[in-house]
């Protein structure tokens, strides 16, 4: 089936303005035991911009995203080669503190995963880990984070309700609030809207535009239109014959969608493949 080329809903969207590089993925390959899931990806992540990873399913977008805060460490047999620089420092270098990296590079997951505790405790979770016990500070930061996640109006009259009791979209915004409460520098989002209905999806997309003023955002999406709508830079990944994911093209979103350099990218965004 042939689709119309993806329309950018904001045609006046300016080409991304240059910005400092927050993270650099340099020659990264990821192995699961002997299987190579990602091969040799080079990619910059710009500060206060939204970078989207798109590509056919199974091409390793999520795997690549998870290398950025070392969540792959959790999977037995997973191994990362190459470097991932955060502010110029390799997060995979010996002596790096994985706890500190994950605090600086937060993450929001595909399915909302609030803890089975109150909204307040959910947001305060990371703060309490950092040893903040003072009620006044906690109150202030919880409110600030919930406001930033556009959830405050919905929950302010009952912060003690269970986080699990919220609707799916609200749960996801709660997870965003929880992530931004500890003031990470980068927020990774792994298909954050794939489990949500269209209205909740729109709310979150709008939210991202305000969040990027303070945070650097990397988002994986299976939805090209979404990438086109919200991101400043897009990386298109694909799968090689040996099922290893690799980077096909990276560039400012507008350019990548309107004037792709690679044939494969063009095929993909016009719906001829994938």
């Amino acid at each position: 089936m042939t689709q119309q080329p993806v329309a950018l809903n904001r045609t006046d969207k300016p080409a991304a303005v240059a910005s400092a590089t927050k993270m650099v993925i340099r020659g990264v390959s990821v192995y699961y035991k002997t299987f190579r899931a990602i091969k040799n990806v080079d990619l910059p992540v710009y500060e206060n911009r939204i970078t989207a990873f798109i590509g056919p399913s199974g091409c390793g977008k999520s795997t690549l995203l998870r290398t950025l805060n070392r969540m792959n460490d959790l999977i037995p047999g997973a191994r990362v080669e190459g470097k991932v620089l955060l502010d110029g420092e390799d997060i995979y270098a010996a002596g790096q503190d994985v706890v500190d990296i994950r605090r600086r590079v937060g993450m929001v997951f595909q399915r909302p995963n609030p803890f089975p505790m109150s909204v307040y405790d959910n947001v305060a979770f990371g703060l309490r880990l950092l040893g903040i016990r003072q009620k006044s500070i906690l109150d202030e930061v919880v409110e600030r984070s919930l406001r930033a996640a556009a959830l405050w109006e919905h929950v302010c009259d009952n912060l003690n309700q269970s986080g699990m009791a919220l609707s799916g979209g609200q749960q996801q915004r709660l997870c965003i609030a929880r992530a931004i409460a500890v003031e990470p520098e980068v927020i990774l989002m792994d298909e954050p809207t794939s489990a949500l209905d269209p209205i909740a999806t729109l709310t979150i997309e709008d939210l991202l535009q305000t969040l990027k003023e303070n945070f650097t955002i990397v988002i994986v999406t299976h939805n090209m239109q979404q990438a086109a709508r919200i991101s400043d830079y897009t990386a298109f990944l694909s799968m090689d014959d040996d099922r290893a994911g690799y980077l096909v093209e990276f560039g400012p979103t507008v350019e990548l969608f309107t004037n792709p350099k690679e044939k494969l990218t063009e095929d993909y965004i016009t719906g001829r493949f994938g």
């Binding site: 994950r102 605090r103 997951f109 803890f115 929880r178």
Partner: peptide, 15 residues
């Protein structure tokens, strides 16, 4: 317990 609970905590910088 779903893995997502573990991931959520670890991604917040929990040990």
């Amino acid at each position: 317990i779903p893995r997502s609970q573990r991931e959520a905590a670890l991604a917040l910088g929990a040990t």
